[in-house]
Design a protein around this nucleic acid. Structure first.
Lengths: 174, 174
DNA sequence: AGCCTACATTCCACTGTTGACATGTCGCTA
DNA sequence: TAGCGACATGTCAACAGTGGAATGTAGGCT
């Protein structure tokens, strides 16, 4: 249940409304922890029930501004410092690789090549993002670190996919 | 809904019971697409309703052996060759990095160092796995390719976490 | 005045995932 | 023969995530 912690993390930087949080998810967390409107508002209610956040102010158009409480800060810190067994992430892409022997060599190769292209594209868009934020408001250290992870990941993915495409050519059979 | 395709992929290699599939998920797909018993049996029922698999034989202890049908093979191939916008994976680890500014420098550093250790450990266990399978039944090409991905990923994660830990030391503030 | 867009919240139905519980068979061995 | 452990299937409640619809406000434009 990390949506909760993502919201607490955002609120730790300052009060915000559900709508604000939604925008923050869109612009800064979209590639790490996407969240929909239904989720955000529902979780905000639960968070308030648990006294981890509270309504700090009510604005013009029914706007409710929430602020994190001391309990919320404690919960956030606990989540950040507690060692949890990080559960395995599912990977659609790798799952397909496992079953690539169900299609012919050409199709398998095509799949891997497409992965290389997708990874390269993601890499490019992250590079663009880095330039944008470098030019204006410099990213906070941790933002830069997270971005660097994306950069390294996509670059590794591209190399791997290219290697894999070559590898299946080298392989006897199929 | 890729549980369905994972099961079709496994059944494409030969008939199996729900129990067999469960074991296969545990040993070969645990790190790519974990599945529980409830899910497997329920999905098997749905798959049979949709005529993508059928009961091929009934064994000793209520055992039902399922086989993939032509429709199932078609569905599997379609999934393997169809370009789908791969949805973003959530990352608990990266989410934490984003909010590391809510704790002090020492704790942030500790978190990143711990990530480096975890990655290194995963890397070692994959190396072990590779040696085991290399010694006995050689992995199929695609299994090797998927394993290589894990190896590269964990190695990249370790390097990145070490770099990140150093990086926050170099940073002014906190 | 009428319309559009951005702001803003709430509710709902559906699917996917987890964990626990219930039930029963079969072969081994103390 | 009683009990254990591996085999084997089935069901249920709860929660997380997705997508869409309904509702309403306020400001700006034509």
């Amino acid at each position: 249940m990390s949506l909760r912690h993502a919201m607490l993390g955002l609120l730790a930087r300052g009060p915000a409304s559900g709508y604000d949080l939604l925008k923050l998810f869109e612009i800064s967390l979209a590639n790490v922890w996407p969240a929909t409107q239904s989720q955000v508002y529902a979780e905000l209610g639960r968070l308030a029930d648990a006294d981890l956040v509270k309504v700090a102010a009510e604005g013009p158009r029914g706007r409710k501004e929430y602020a994190i409480t001391d309990g919320g800060v404690a919960e956030l810190r606990h989540w950040l410092t507690d060692v949890e067994p990080n559960r395995v992430g599912r990977s659609d892409m790798l799952l397909r690789v496992f079953f690539l022997d169900s299609v012919d060599h050409g199709q398998a190769r095509e799949y891997l090549e497409r992965q290389a292209v997708v990874a390269a594209r993601s890499h490019q868009s992250l590079l663009g993002l880095r330039d944008v934020v470098a030019g204006s408001d410099p990213l906070k250290t941790y933002g830069r670190i997270a971005l660097e992870y994306g950069l390294r990941l996509t670059s590794m993915q591209r190399e791997w996919a290219e290697w894999a495409a070559g590898e299946i050519d080298r392989q006897p059979g199929t």
